[in-house]
Computed example of a mutant assay.
Amino acid sequence: MPTGVAMRDAREQLFDAAERVLLRDGPHALTSRAVTTEAGCAKGVLHRHFDDFDAFLAELVRDRAARVEAQAAALLERAGAGTVAGNLTDVLMDLFGSVAVAIVALITFRDDLRARLRRDRPTGVPILTEATAMIVSYLAAERERGRIASDADLDALALALIGSGHLLFAGREDIPPGVEAVHHMVTTVIAGATPRALDIK
């Protein structure tokens, strides 16, 4: 494989390749050789950009977590429009239908990666932590609009939604839950926090 050909946006190409390997073959198959083979580049390309493979994986996790943070702004813009349950269903389908579940499995699988991430993230699980914060912010915006009860425990609701969503999707890569199942879970979780006069369906 040629080593003198420059890769355009090498980091992102390597991240995308790692994501494909992770989704297709699982965390046990994610090696530096598997990533560079998937990206179609020499193995040395990865090591020119990262100190070692765990450093690469840590940056992959941070990059994907940052994407979740970017989604928060888009979700906030939907506050007051559509339905609360519909908006939450869409964001959970998008979150867990992508690489989030696989990233969590990767962090669990690799002790060295988990230890490295703990240096700047002492608590929580990357991606799930950002997703929980996103849900809390959205629910707060809906509460201001009267679509979530004023006394609702937003942190508890967000944790319940993220935890339940993760359980729905975990281990079901081939046949993920449909939108109906996710919507049913969402409506069940938020039912007690939604004014009765409001249609959350």
Rank of each mutant, 00 (worst) to 15 (best):
Ala158Lys: 09
Gln13Ile: 12
Ala197Val: 13
Glu130Lys: 09
Ala70Asn: 12
Ile135Leu: 13
Thr132Pro: 00
Val35Trp: 02
Gly4Trp: 04
Leu14Phe: 02
Gly82Met: 06
Arg172Tyr: 00
Arg196Lys: 14
Leu95Asp: 05
Ala58Met: 05
Thr129Cys: 06
Glu38Val: 11
Ala105Asp: 13
Pro177Tyr: 01
Ala79Leu: 07
Ala58Val: 08
Arg118Cys: 09
Ala55Lys: 13
Ala141Cys: 09
Val99Thr: 12
His47Asp: 11
Phe169Leu: 05
Cys41Glu: 00
Ala17Tyr: 01
Glu144His: 11
Ile127Thr: 09
Asp111Phe: 11
Ala79Asn: 07
Asp54Ser: 11
Ser98Trp: 10
Ala29Arg: 06
Ile135Cys: 04
Tyr138Asn: 07
Arg24Asp: 13
Arg116Pro: 01
Arg147Gly: 03
Leu92Val: 05
Arg64Tyr: 08
Val99Gly: 02
Ala73Cys: 07
Ala29Tyr: 00
Asp52Trp: 03
Leu76Trp: 02
Gly165Ser: 04
Ala193Met: 03
Ala181Leu: 14
Phe50Cys: 09
Glu144Trp: 06
Arg8Asp: 12
Arg64Phe: 10
Ala133Asn: 10
Thr36Arg: 04
Glu69Ser: 14
Ala39Asn: 01
Leu159Gly: 15
Gly82Lys: 10
Val21His: 00
Ala197Met: 11
Ala140Tyr: 08
Arg33Val: 09
His49Tyr: 08
His183Asn: 15
Ala70Gly: 10
Arg143Lys: 12
Thr194Glu: 01
His184Asp: 15
Arg116Leu: 08
Arg118Phe: 07
Thr187Leu: 02
Leu60Asn: 03
